[in-house]
Design a binder for these strands. Structure first.
Lengths: 145, 145
DNA sequence: CCCGATTCATTCAGATGTGAAAACAATCCG
DNA sequence: CGGATTGTTTTCACATCTGAATGAATCGGG
């Protein structure tokens, strides 16, 4: 078993580096093929899978702070990707949903992400990729509940 | 085998979420116990392990763009953690090294990172944590050379 | 019914990233 | 020698995060 030493074994540092690498690659392809950024694609993915949601719900699922969600969604609204409306049941809340444009972009982004993910699975092997997904998922759940 | 569905299995999205979670936790402890941020700790770690380096070398090892390194190191210099000097061999380059203060901070940050990492190993199991490290390392190397 | 506590979103200031383009230094080569 | 090219860093404009403070709506116990 090769033990490569990039930055020792400090997972905290390594995961950020890896995330930057992947994110950069994803961002380029998402911009070209779907016209959205990587951050935006996460929101689009969520809305496409789960439908209209609160800002707070988006923040919880993506582990983003409230101000981060506000800014990200506002920029997406300016770009015509999503629509915001006050929650009629509880007017403190704000509901976000895909626009028609946004739905198209979300589907395009989804294809890009699926391709990228398939590439990763191939590069790493399905078994290892699976372990990584499980571990990261477990990690996220343990930190957020 | 439990297959949790946080955000399907799009590793590109999941790794960013996980990185945010870990980074946030690390940042709090690093600020309290070492007086530095998570980003700064990566640079300190590198300089402590490898000694004085070029800005470009730091960027390559941490997968950061040149402007990111310039900004990060400048803030660290303002904070008294590092010292910059022109490379006497090739005056295009800029060498960065730890200050006395920086060395202390680096050692403190190192202890924090070691503790955090030990906690992760315990939570995930050494074998799984090892797989994740190997996979992420492989990934980073394949993207950067 | 009302006021204090809670919840949700926004604003704010600042750290951290990016790509594009400018500023310089070194090197190549005709 | 000198102009073109290459390499390194910085500047710039902007997207993306964070915690802290604020505002707005709801809830719940008198």
């Amino acid at each position: 078993m090769v033990r490569v030493r990039t930055v020792d074994r400090r997972l905290f540092l390594l995961i950020e580096i890896a995330a930057r690498c992947l994110s950069r690659e994803a961002d380029v392809r998402l911009r070209v093929e779907a016209g959205v950024t990587a951050s935006q694609s996460a929101v689009l993915f969520l809305l496409l899978q789960r439908g209209e949601r609160r800002l707070s719900s988006i923040g919880a699922m993506l582990a983003l702070s409230a101000p981060a969600v506000t800014g990200l969604v506002n920029r997406m609204q300016s770009a015509g990707l999503v629509v915001k409306r006050k929650d009629p049941q509880d007017r403190r809340g704000v509901l976000v949903d895909l626009s028609e444009t946004g739905r198209g972009a979300a589907e395009a982004a989804n294809r890009v992400l699926r391709n990228l993910n398939a590439g990763l699975d191939e590069q790493l092997g399905e078994d290892k990729a699976g372990v990584v997904c499980d571990v990261l998922t477990q990690l996220v759940l343990s930190k957020n509940g």
